[in-house]
């Protein structure tokens, strides 16, 4: 019997390293370590000029160890070292009460609420526009060029105007930011859903015709379920764009809070550590949102009979 290969036997023998290298953990870890190494090198290099100035003003003696340590512990470094950002994140996320204006969680929530509101509005608007475009040739011809043109306008240029104009009619806070998020996130949804609604085969559409199905029956029983995989893909793109929109919308509001205002305040006062920790927080938020959509996608598609 020993001549027969045991399935899984090879894994058992070569141990933990084989198993880890087959998963995603090891490759991801290697990439993260490479990024950190490059980051530290860049931090030393970029902060060296300032460090040399500090030493020049001081009393003569310094060693290379002092120099290296110095480049990684400046108050306002050109590029903060990763551990400085980690300490800042720890202090502002764990070290503060979440209702405090010094808490990064507080600011993240302000941004997240605008992101979510804008994302929901953008997704609904995107689906509605796609429905119109698919069902009406005139809409297809007249709307689509405008939708594409809308995305060629730089959002950084239009966002302050939206915020200022809406503030002048008394709309401040969540809604203006959410509108900018909507503006950015509806686009991938429209494009994806138009493709999705048009994805059924001719044969599947012919089948509906032989049943003398109405347009709404064809939509709900064929076009919409066919478009579901497209919906989730475009929602993942849309939610990331939505977060960018909310942050951009917070830049002109300055003191009102949110990750965007943290970025702006950080750049006013040269607080690069604060900027970078806000950036990392934004990236983490974005990753979380995309992950959440991925989970919903898996649940919905599994319930609609997708091949595991």
């Amino acid at each position: 019997m020993s001549a027969i290969a045991v399935p899984g036997g090879a894994i058992g023998r070569s141990g933990i390293w084989t198993r880890m290298s087959q998963g995603t953990a090891v490759p991801v870890l290697i990439v993260v370590m490479a990024i950190l190494a490059v980051w530290y090198l860049a931090a030393v290099w970029l902060n060296s000029a300032w460090q040399l100035q500090i030493f020049a003003r001081g009393e003569g003696d310094w060693t290379w160890v002092d120099f290296l340590a110095g480049t990684m512990s400046q108050d306002r470094p050109l590029l903060p070292a990763p551990h400085q950002i980690a300490v800042e994140l720890w202090n502002t996320v764990i070290g503060q009460h979440v209702t405090s204006r010094r808490s990064l969680v507080y600011h993240a929530w302000i941004t997240l609420s605008a992101t979510l509101l804008g994302f929901v509005m953008g997704t609904v608007l995107g689906i509605l526009l796609a429905v119109l475009i698919v069902h009406n040739r005139a809409m297809d011809r007249s709307l689509m060029p405008w939708i594409i043109a809308s995305q060629t306008i730089p959002i950084l240029a239009i966002a302050p105007m939206v915020v200022v104009v809406l503030a002048s009619i008394g709309m401040t806070g969540l809604v203006p930011k959410a509108l900018i998020s909507t503006y950015l996130s509806f686009f991938p949804v429209v494009v994806g859903m138009v493709k999705g609604f048009r994805s059924p085969d001719t044969i599947q559409l012919d089948l509906m015709r032989t049943y003398h199905a109405s347009q709404s029956q064809t939509f709900w029983k064929l076009r919409f379920p066919s478009a579901l995989p497209y919906l989730f893909t475009s929602m993942k793109v849309g939610v990331a764009a939505s977060l960018v929109g909310a942050i951009v919308g917070e830049l002109p509001t300055g003191a009102a809070g949110g990750l965007g205002s943290r970025l702006l305040a950080g750049s006013y006062y040269g607080q690069t550590v604060q900027i970078w920790s806000a950036l990392l927080m934004a990236a983490a938020l974005s990753a979380m949102l995309i992950l959440a959509i991925g989970v919903v996608q898996r649940i919905v598609l599994a319930r609609t009979g997708a091949r595991p």
Partner: peptide, 21 residues
């Protein structure tokens, strides 16, 4: 005849909807 659902049509491919049992 089509409006009165006079016939059933079987296509070359089964054309079952994959999201339905």
């Amino acid at each position: 005849a089509r409006r009165s659902r006079a016939y059933g049509y079987v296509f070359q491919a089964a054309a079952l909807y994959p999201w339905r049992t």
